[in-house]
């Protein structure tokens, strides 16, 4: 039976481009806002753009937080993208302090405008390189490469544990965590579905975890 890949629809963002990317790679990902469908999925994609609070509100409104956490607890492959990845952390600091899904320890904070010597938000392509205490071996990133991915964000992950920092990037002289990982759970600050061949490669690698 074909694997069930579910793109979680919680009312934020553009899900079609993700579905299109999976279709291009030969996978029929379904878009769903149904908790039961998500709970029984083989792999879950948590997409999203917008504010942290709106994202959590969207998940709660549809009673999806528990289903997403359930998939994470069972270490089934999960890919958070942009806001979706931020929600995996414990807390977000956008327009106030809000609780996240708590799948990975840490918080989401704004770029430090005094330290970053460029415009915020960061919009455009940036390089991703390995974290200091993690290896890309056996991960969704290809060891030895420094892929360029498409970012559009003002907020960044701040994981508590270095072992969860899979990828780093640098913007305006400030280094930040651009990929988080805990087992089969991954979160990217960038948009792999809009990052050309490098992004498609990451998604292809993700499907191989299933």
């Amino acid at each position: 039976m074909a694997s069930r890949i579910t793109i979680v629809d919680y009312g934020v963002g553009n899900l079609q481009s993700l579905k299109k990317a999976f279709a291009h790679l030969g996978f029929d990902a379904i878009i769903s806002e149904d908790a039961e469908e998500i709970r029984v999925s083989d792999a879950v994609i948590l997409p999203g753009v917008g504010s942290f609070e709106a994202g959590m509100r969207g998940l709660k409104l549809r009673n999806l937080t528990e289903a997403v956490q359930h998939v994470a607890v069972h270490n089934r492959p999960m890919l958070g993208i942009c806001l979706g990845a931020q929600l995996m952390l414990e807390q977000g600091h956008e327009f106030g302090v809000f609780d996240g899904l708590g799948i990975i320890e840490g918080e989401v904070v704004r770029f430090d405008a005094d330290a970053v010597k460029e415009k915020i938000p960061e919009v455009g392509w940036n390089e991703v390189y390995p974290g200091t205490e993690t290896s890309w071996e056996g991960s969704i990133l290809v060891p030895g490469e420094k892929p360029r991915m498409y970012f559009t964000h003002s907020y960044i992950f701040k994981p508590s544990r270095k072992e969860n920092i899979l990828g780093l990037s640098s913007y305006g002289g400030t280094e930040f965590c651009s990929v988080i990982r805990k087992g089969n759970i991954y979160g990217c600050q960038f948009h792999p579905e809009k990052s050309g061949e490098a992004g498609l490669q990451l998604i292809r690698n993700f499907t191989q975890l299933i």
Binding site: K20, H24, Y150, K194, S195, G196, G199
Partner: peptide, 8 residues
């Protein structure tokens, strides 16, 4: 047009 394009 957008079908096979994976950039913004």
């Amino acid at each position: 047009v957008s079908e096979d394009i994976f950039i913004p």
